[in-house]
Design a protein around this nucleic acid. Structure first.
Lengths: 123, 123
DNA sequence: TTGCTAGATCGATCGTCATCAATTCAGGCC
DNA sequence: GGCCTGAATTGATGACGATCGATCTAGCAA
């Protein structure tokens, strides 16, 4: 057995019991399961090279926005695939989608990247 | 065809030609493929709930370090799985591994999370 | 030496994800 | 109305990743 465990055996088992309300009963600093899943979902959106490039291109685009037709080229991916990635970024709250006429314009959600960065600090 | 493209057709095709040296010939601000892959790899390490909890637990642990036996319990995972996740975090430069006697102690690499956070700002 | 324990590695399995071709939807134009 | 174009959705496929049981390695103690 472990030598340490300075009196925190209470935190030991926080798992299968089907999503126990939520965490932090009092002296439990570490992330609970639900929090961790939510935050991981956020990072999953950033865990793909093509999605990072999408964010980068949109950020650098003229007017801070770009339509899908401007994005398929640089990425070398098919239109459905790019649309798929854009949806993931929108669902993650990182991109904003605005349809004007035939075109769909994507732009960075202000402060979204900064907020994600803060998650790392408050782990 | 697209109406926009304010004179940046040069950036259009940067894809299949088998990893062209590297990016940014001059006026190409967006992430190149290689950069994107490297940065995505970083976020991949954070894109798992259990790894986030590992970081959280290690950070909150007494002395800022924890051995594997302290980590399998809270996560409800087998020892090989925890070891696997820890290796990924070490390879990503987020955790430091120190073997003392029988035990392996893991601690946060100072400034690693902050550096990852900065990547978001410099997309 | 033998035995024991903490941890890493290996192999297999199962689920998730990235990608594409085909289709569908929606907004302009004739 | 019918047609064209930009974009989203669907279905299938191949690759990657999380997990586990079994095995292997490294320290420590009889």
């Amino acid at each position: 057995m472990c030598v340490h465990n300075g009196g925190m055996t209470a935190v030991q088992i926080v798992e299968s019991p089907a999503a126990d309300a939520c965490c932090a009963p009092a002296g439990a600093p570490p992330l609970c399961t639900e929090e961790a899943v939510a935050k991981a979902q956020h990072f999953k959106a950033l865990a793909d090279p093509n999605r990072l490039r999408l964010l980068s291109i949109v950020k650098a685009a003229d007017g801070g926005e770009a339509c899908v037709c401007e994005l398929t080229g640089p990425l070398g991916l098919g239109q459905p695939t790019v649309s798929h990635h854009l949806k993931i970024l929108v669902d993650a709250g990182l991109l904003h989608r605005e349809k004007r006429g035939i075109w769909a314009y994507y732009s960075l959600v202000p402060g979204a990247l900064e907020r994600t960065a803060e998650v790392l600090a408050t782990l």
